[in-house]
Design a protein around this nucleic acid. Structure first.
Lengths: 190, 190
DNA sequence: GTCTATAACTGGATAGAC
DNA sequence: GTCTATCCAGTTATAGAC
């Protein structure tokens, strides 16, 4: 019986609430109510709110690494793997429509709060970036792999922000078509 | 003597603090302290925090319209005016580095807070979008003016988000060069 | 010993009366 | 402009249940 521990439940719930309502705006009471435990009980599992944030970021980091790993194992070409990244925005479409990109919105909130863990949040972005660079290099784009990677990140981030603002399904669909088309001009084979 | 009224001072200060620290995280006391008035005095000018937000969004709306108006009057070609929009990101570079784009970050915060004024915040985005469509149409891009406009917004938004996260001056500089170069391929004259 | 619930403390928030 | 009421956040202390 692989029962999910209370600690894991707290992290998972906090992850969701931080994403949907913002870190600052999410209270212990909110998380506790959703998990179904008392507020005071929290401190048996976490020393402070920042401690939960740390665990949430670590969880997201791990999930990102697992996802990247899965692409590496199951998708044969660098271009195909980059398209997997782009497809996240389709897979998570309804969440992005309501709350934006979890990575970009957290890094910005950390920046505005001048939070000590801002850099840890940015590290998730960095995971994607470094991985994308490797893909572009494998695809033969050795001169400008970094620029191309940042462009993919930048474009998809902007699409997420505008989709969240305008709520226009056609727009997102079209943007992703455009990104894929652009990718085809950058990488011929695959 | 065109003395700035207390009300105007409150709005201006709230505008800045909402941008730099986030709307939710900014308290009455923060604004009051920065303006130099007592908290009680606040209620003479604003009934509630949402009331200030309303005034702040209206201020931003007006500032945006004024800026667009100025471009219309002083810049001769549609392409030149679109480049004025792109140049905002250079002009406000250091602020964007620290806090992101004021429009995109506010709309996202409103979305996460499920705030009643979310649509008013999005309206600022809409001002830029509608105006960009007119510019692209004037430049002869009648078939895809809407798509091109959204692409400019999307790309610049993404660049702002990543610049805020990575703090990489070279990246922002390069992205803006790329956007301008792309614009030159879309609009020949001007 | 591990987990949980209850209660209480402290500070800061909105709100409003005077 | 001061002063107070009320509420809710994060946190801590304590004591009980498994």
């Amino acid at each position: 019986m692989n029962k999910i521990s209370t600690r894991e439940k707290i992290i998972k719930t906090a992850d969701q609430l931080f994403y949907e309502n913002g870190f600052d705006h999410t209270s212990f009471a909110d998380v506790a109510a959703k998990v179904g435990i008392s507020r005071g009980n929290f401190y048996h599992h976490f020393k402070s709110k920042d401690d939960i944030l740390k665990a949430v970021i670590e969880r997201r980091r791990k999930n990102t690494l697992d996802m990247i790993d899965e692409w590496e194992q199951n998708v044969g070409t660098p271009k195909g793997r980059i398209k997997c990244y782009i497809n996240i925005f389709i897979k998570n479409q309804s969440l992005i429509k309501d709350f934006g990109c979890p990575v970009g919105t957290l890094t910005n909130e950390m920046a505005k709060l001048n939070h000590a863990q801002a850099k840890d949040a940015v590290a998730i972005f960095m995971l994607f970036k470094d991985w994308l660079v490797v893909q572009f290099e494998r695809a033969g784009c050795n001169n400008n792999a970094a620029e191309l990677s940042m462009h993919v990140l930048s474009w998809s981030q902007g699409a997420a922000t505008l989709y969240n603002a305008f709520q226009d399904d056609e727009f997102l669909k079209n943007e992703l078509v455009q990104i894929n088309a652009w990718l085809d001009t950058q990488i011929k084979e695959g």
